[in-house]
Simulated assay, not measured.
Amino acid sequence: MQALPKTRTDGRLPLYARLRDQLASRIANGEWSPGDMIPSENRLAEEYGVALATMRMALKQLVDEGLLERRRGTGTFVKQPAFRADLFRFFHVHDVDDPAGSVIPESRILSRQEVALPPEVRQAFGEETTTGCLKLERVRLWSGVPLLFEEIYLRLPDFDGLLSLDPKEMGPLLYPVFLQECGILVASATDELSFGTATEASARHLELPEESPVAVIERIARNPVGRVIEYRRVHGRPERFRYRITLGEQPT
């Protein structure tokens, strides 16, 4: 039987879901790369010592989530991820000297810890009970000036792979890291913009007086089958935010 990967699985999950997590971990760890054909259902079922029907359910979940794809008459392959740039960059940052351009702010992970679910995160995840979540605090900077303070809540054990990862290796874009380290593909997200006041933490990291006005962005991100896997709350300097929308057809 296949040895369990380092990524922890929740023993309360059904067997096929735990198999899904283990197979996703093998993809995330690079055992199977994008474009590779994975072993057959029969071989994997024998390797893990499970019924063929159970293994088929685990593989179907990975296909539904966009990590695997079936090719008729050939086999099952690790899918090449089709990321969207607008998901990568959250809100676009523009240089005042080049308003048509868009840049990726610098990023710095401030903290990483397992926490109980705050009420708003529990509501976003849509479950009565869960095992808690991983919380990341991150600051985004532009030319060394703090621009955004982020509180990012991620499901556990889905994101256990981030617990041992050096934060310096995460880089400015988190979603590629989610796929590489945890086998989690973010397919869609809903952003809501409002305005509020800075908390003690956001004021400190944005270098603002406490309770200063801030832009507030809440993001709910989902995997390809619509399961919410991330809740993000962001405070930003309001003077750097502009809202623009174009209605109707533009002349060509």
Rank of each mutant, 00 (worst) to 15 (best):
L247W: 09
P119L: 02
N42E: 13
G183R: 03
G248A: 03
M1W: 08
V50W: 01
G226N: 04
I109Q: 00
F178C: 03
V145L: 12
E207Q: 15
R242Y: 08
E65P: 01
E249D: 11
R232V: 06
T129G: 01
E151N: 12
E169N: 07
S202G: 08
G196T: 05
R227V: 15
F125E: 04
W142V: 15
E207H: 14
K168V: 15
L59C: 07
A198Y: 02
T130D: 13
L162K: 02
I184R: 08
T7L: 14
V115Q: 02
D97Q: 12
E169L: 14
R112F: 05
E46D: 13
G75D: 09
F241D: 04
L15V: 15
D10L: 14
R222P: 01
L68Q: 08
H94T: 03
Y48L: 07
I220M: 11
S188K: 03
R233I: 08
N29P: 00
E127S: 09
T199G: 14
T190L: 10
A58Y: 03
L206K: 01
Q2T: 06
F77N: 04
Q113K: 13
Y231F: 15
L163M: 13
A221L: 03
E181T: 09
H94N: 03
K79T: 07
E211L: 11
L179Q: 00
M55W: 07
A221N: 04
G248H: 06
P157S: 12
E207G: 07
P5H: 11
N223K: 04
A116V: 11
E181D: 08
G132I: 06
R242P: 00
G236M: 14
R12K: 13
L52D: 05
R108E: 15
A124Y: 00
I27S: 02
C133A: 15
E41T: 13
E151A: 05
E137F: 01
R89V: 15
F195P: 00
Q61K: 12
L206M: 06
P99Y: 04
Y48R: 06
E211N: 12
A100D: 13
Q250H: 09
D21C: 08
V145E: 15
S194L: 05
T199Y: 05
A215Y: 03
S194W: 02
R155Q: 06
L62Q: 00
P99S: 09
S25H: 10
M57W: 08
W142Y: 15
E46I: 02
W142H: 14
Q80E: 14
P105M: 04
L193W: 13
E47N: 09
T130F: 06
Y231Q: 01
P119Y: 01
D160M: 05
S164D: 14
A3V: 06
H92G: 08
L206A: 03
K79A: 15
E192H: 05
R26P: 04
R138I: 00
R108T: 12
L174C: 00
F77R: 10
I109E: 00
Y175Q: 12
S194D: 15
A201G: 04
Y48N: 02
T190I: 04
S143Y: 06
R18K: 13
E106Q: 14
V115Y: 12
L179H: 07
T131F: 07
F149E: 00
R56H: 12
E249M: 10
S40V: 12
G126Q: 03
